[in-house]
Amino acid sequence: MAATTHTLTIPSSTRFLEDVREFVTSHAEKAEFSESEVEQLKMAVDEACANVIEHAYHGETEQPIDIAVIIQPDRLTVRIRDKGRQFNQVNYQEPDLAKYAKAKKSGGFGVHIMRRLMDEVQYRTTGGVNECCLVKFRN
């Protein structure tokens, strides 16, 4: 199946999240996804990259994060690659807000948001490279 790929590499600092959102928004709009779908893609990618910065690179700000927007006739995939620490997505649980508030817990919603907004969220690690793929099918 024909695919068009657009790539962006950012350093692992939260200051570049804005650039990632603009990059994904621009290509999702050009691929004629709806306004709400573009918003969902933008947010899911932001969460995925913020997770890489916090959990894979532990706040190191100069490590590379490679982002690719892959457009196919039936879907848009955003692939995010890093070479940081692999973090465990297997133990993911739906967040319990009341418990989080009691515990004054400020994190842990990102994966939930990604899963709610995307049609597919896949993780794999090969040869020291962690990869997260976020998939949105065309309606």
């Binding site: 999240l17 959102r21 933008k42 947010m43 932001d46 969460e47 913020a50 807000l97 989080y100 508030a101 009691k102 004054k104 817990k105 400020s106 994190g107 842990g108 919603f109 990102g110 939930h112 948001i113």
Partner: peptide, 17 residues
């Protein structure tokens, strides 16, 4: 114009206090 989970987390962290 936009909020991510990190922004929501700030509300969660302070509401009880």
């Amino acid at each position: 114009l936009y909020i991510s989970s990190a922004g929501l987390g700030v509300f969660m962290a302070y509401i009880e206090e």
